[in-house]
């Protein structure tokens, strides 16, 4: 029983971080129809920035703030300078249509190698603001720490803010409209271009927070967020790649699944499991857990 609760709680922690990465991917997918593989690269830059600030000042929240701002700026920059240029060519040939996706991959490579040139490829530790020691309940330790509480709380806050923006503000309405029907949105007076950039900004923020939250339980290196990117993608696919609630749900489902494999089977099978989950989701639920009907309400 104790192990079961511990497994669920760990799953929730992991899942909330996967959800953030999935949200980032879904936001970009909805606004630009590209799966942004460079999201992991953008997040690694912001995480290294946060790392520098934490090691210098020791103030975790200041580091998070800087990471968020950097993530927003990076997202906007990538969309404005790279994606807009690419999309001008999309109709010019069969392969050009794939160009944006391939460009995000190239960008991931560029960012990772620049980060490697600046900080080196060795592993670094990122110190958490609160303890990562397990709680002790009735004399028995459960695999759940203060830091895990912090992760769940902060992702919940971020999700609430995001859903408020998307459901209750004009900006959110424009974002949803531009994602759903760009042509009609344009006719309705929405400036689709800047709205797209804002979608990338939100994605950058979500990715930056995910990077800062997952790293204290892990190590930091230029390639350390690649796995998060993959898990985020799988979570987004489970959720249907279109829907924001779907991404969150997909992240939590995947997180709990990974945690069960971790605690009951061992680390050996984590990746095969995730991959099988991805294939099963593609075969049986290609429209995501929340189904095609929900896509419109997103």
């Amino acid at each position: 029983m104790r192990q079961l609760i511990g497994t669920l709680l760990i799953g929730l922690t992991l899942g909330s971080i996967y959800s953030l990465m999935a949200l980032a991917l879904v936001l970009v997918w909805r606004s630009t129809r590209v799966v942004n593989f460079a999201q992991a690269g953008q997040a690694i830059v912001t995480t290294y920035i946060a790392y520098e600030i934490v090691t210098r000042t020791g103030v975790f929240w200041l580091a998070v703030l800087f990471a968020v701002v950097a993530g927003a700026l990076l997202g906007a920059g990538v969309e404005y300078f790279l994606m807009r240029t690419l999309f001008r060519h999309v109709d010019e040939g069969p392969v050009a249509a794939l160009a944006p996706v391939i460009a995000t991959l190239g960008l991931l490579g560029v960012i990772k190698s620049i980060v490697g040139m600046i900080w080196g490829n060795d592993f670094r530790s990122f110190y958490p603001p609160v303890s990562t020691d397990n709680f002790v309940l009735f004399g028995e330790s459960i695999p759940f720490s203060r830091f895990n509480v912090l992760v769940i709380l902060s992702t919940t806050v971020v999700m609430i803010i995001f859903s408020f923006i998307f459901q209750r503000t004009d900006l959110g309405l424009s974002l949803r409209a531009a994602a759903f029907q760009p042509e009609i949105a344009r006719l309705a007076g929405i400036r689709v271009g800047p709205i797209r950039t804002i979608g990338w900004v939100f994605a950058g923020v979500a990715g930056a927070i995910a990077g800062v939250l997952i790293t204290p339980n892990d190590v930091l290196s230029p390639a350390s967020l690649d796995v998060l990117l993959v898990f985020g993608f799988v979570a987004a696919v489970i959720g249907g790649l279109e829907s924001l609630p779907g991404a969150v749900l997909g992240g939590v489902v995947l997180g709990i699944g990974v945690s069960f494999v971790l605690n009951y089977v061992g680390t050996t099978l984590i990746f095969p499991t995730v991959f099988v989950v991805l294939l099963l989701a593609l075969i049986f639920k290609p429209n995501g857990l929340l189904g095609a009907k929900k896509v419109r309400s997103a």
Binding site: F37, V227, L229, F233, P272, V274, F275, L278
Partner: peptide, 8 residues
Amino acid sequence: TTLALAVG
């Protein structure tokens, strides 16, 4: 999917 494969 292919990217996931290459990472994992």
